[in-house]
């Protein structure tokens, strides 16, 4: 078995453990805990009064702009990491290239700030 495969098998096993841990502990607790459902208890919580309207009501999700910005900068981070390891080998050329790349993306951020999409009114 290659080391690469072993590495990611370990990762997979650890991730699976997260699920197993929840299931086991909930299983143990299910023996001890009471279970007396009634309609009032199963109601959605809304400060003690009966809930008004549906829980999934329409809202203005302000965060979608941040979502778009995040996508741009997260991809940038993916490109920065391989360069970061090889900074010394790539030398001045690589440095200038990366600074140009970052500058273009910062320009996008400046544009977003100037357009006031990050302001709340």
């Amino acid at each position: 078995m290659s080391t690469y495969f072993e590495s990611y098998l370990t990762v997979g096993a650890f991730a699976a453990l997260g699920v197993v841990l929840v299931l086991v502990m909930l299983g143990v607790a299910s023996v001890l805990r009471p279970n007396k459902p009634n309609p009032g208890k199963q109601l959605t919580y809304e400060c003690g009064v009966d809930p008004v309207g549906a829980g999934w009501s329409q809202t203005y999700v302000r965060y979608y702009v941040y979502g778009l910005l995040f996508l741009i900068f997260d991809v940038e981070a993916v490109f920065i990491f391989p360069w970061a390891i090889n900074v010394e080998r790539l030398g001045v050329f690589g440095l200038v290239e990366m600074l140009v790349f970052i500058a273009i993306l910062v320009l996008g951020l400046v544009y977003a700030i100037r357009k006031k999409v990050l302001r709340w009114e």
Partner: peptide, 10 residues
């Protein structure tokens, strides 16, 4: 451990 596991109907 002894808390009831409540899942709302909705």
């Amino acid at each position: 451990f002894q808390k009831e596991d409540i899942i709302p109907d909705n």
